[in-house]
Design a binder for these strands. Structure first.
Lengths: 257, 257
DNA sequence: GCATGTGAATAGCTTCACAGCT
DNA sequence: AGCTGTGAAGCTATTCACATGC
């Protein structure tokens, strides 16, 4: 999800809807697995199952890329792998920098998952002088003072931020000034960036909170199931007080002025 | 994003749209920051800016929760913190288990971000006997043989999977059988779960690929900008070959049969 | 015959713009 | 006067269902 003032609202990316773009990597992963097993062709039904979507959606998605299937047969696996890779821009090499080599940053650096797919970690960067020079994932950590130089020399346009929340905006600003135009943010903060810069965020805590919401609903369903006509009895003692109109549950202590 | 056969398609969660639920944690974070600075009230405009959304969306979102604001004034910060927390189910304690204590798992365990917000790591679990007993983030790692016992004794309903891709489905199945109904998946695989179980996934590699797509488009724009009437000259030599109808770019080597 | 590709229908989300309340 | 709360409009995404072409 892009954040802040980001993500061109106007024209859709070369006609490919954002929702489709977000699924292309899923298809690509499923196709790569098939390719490794030397499966020559696959139907929309099979591939959709492997990618965890339904087949109509998959066919619609592919239709934005072009007519890459064969009616009555399905899709050629190798061909699709190539087309989707090209569409995603993975046929070229993307040097990236990671800023913030703490627990998470180090774990990400060690995670090989992206190194395989067109991405190459050009540098690991941290502000802590004690970290500088230490090898992480086989590379020496570099000091943030050299950020601009590193970005420039390596032609980096994608940055990963894994700093504490407090440092993220500042790091972001420096990345953007130095020429980075895509940022993956692991810090739990909203980043503000100028137009033309894309930000995506990954936040563990937010994901858990969303799960908790659904989990809570499941628990509540057990009781108030079946005939949902009679509203469940109010938990507290008194009747719904005047004023606030929330469905139920008031503040434990004091009410707002 | 929920995956596989998941996420009740029918009735919306107590009337709250999924897109709204996904933003509540953002609002909550912004509100918590205001609360810590003892700001008493906030307008939709201010709060929206802090959360990185626009104010109309925020007001619409809040309208699904109830009428918690005061016209002409704004929202009471403390009150909203409480209401959103309650809506998200964060006024109760959620014990979670983390399975797979490798680089990433350990980093997540050390990341305090969720411990604060109603979530409590009940156990760290790994399949590697060499890991068992080792302290990570102040807790001894436990063996996966005890998974069911741990889940049962702690009343765990939320699990985090940070294993290698190959082990994820198997771990997922065991979690579900043991009673877990919400899963946060960091392994790069599609998990299949029965109805009623929610899965959300976090995948670094996918996020980077989405960024690469947009990045590529930006690079292409520099050339074909301004008057987009005349189509840009075809990159290769020959005219668009018959047969495949993709917008441009064919396979480097062999074509499919 | 069979699976793709796609218009048309539906559902869901966002934005607008203003009525309603403080 | 100012800001919320919300119908209505517009837009994006998903699903349906079938014509199309191998």
């Amino acid at each position: 999800m892009a954040t802040g003032r980001t993500h061109r609202p106007a024209t859709r990316s070369r006609g490919i809807p954002e929702a489709t773009v977000a699924r292309l990597p899923l298809y690509l992963r499923a196709l790569t697995a098939l390719s490794e097993r030397s499966v020559p062709t696959v139907s929309s039904e099979e591939l959709a199952a492997a990618a965890g979507v339904n087949s109509a959606k998959l066919r619609k998605d592919f239709s934005y890329l072009g007519s890459y299937g064969t009616r009555g047969v399905g899709y050629d696996v190798e061909y699709l792998v190539y087309q989707i890779s090209r569409e995603l821009g993975l046929t070229q090499d993307w040097p990236i920098v990671m800023v913030g080599i703490g627990n998470l940053g180090a774990a990400l650096a060690n995670y090989g998952g992206f190194a395989s797919r067109g991405f190459r970690v050009a540098a690991l960067i941290d502000a802590d002088p004690a970290m500088v020079g230490k090898p992480v994932a086989g590379m020496p950590v570099q000091h943030i003072d050299d950020l601009e130089k590193i970005i420039d020399e390596n032609g980096v346009s994608i940055g990963v931020i894994a700093t504490p929340a407090g440092a993220a905006q500042q790091v972001c600003d420096r990345l953007v000034t130095a020429g980075v135009t895509s940022i993956l943010n692991f810090a739990p903060t909203v980043l503000s960036v100028p137009d033309g810069v894309d930000v995506r965020k990954v936040d563990l805590s937010i994901e858990l909170q969303i799960l908790a919401f659904h989990e809570q609903r499941k628990a509540g369903e057990e009781a108030g199931a079946a005939e949902a006509v009679v509203p469940p009895v109010v938990r507290g003692a008194t009747a719904p007080a005047e004023g606030r109109k929330g469905p139920d549950g008031d503040m434990p202590a004091v009410m707002p002025a």
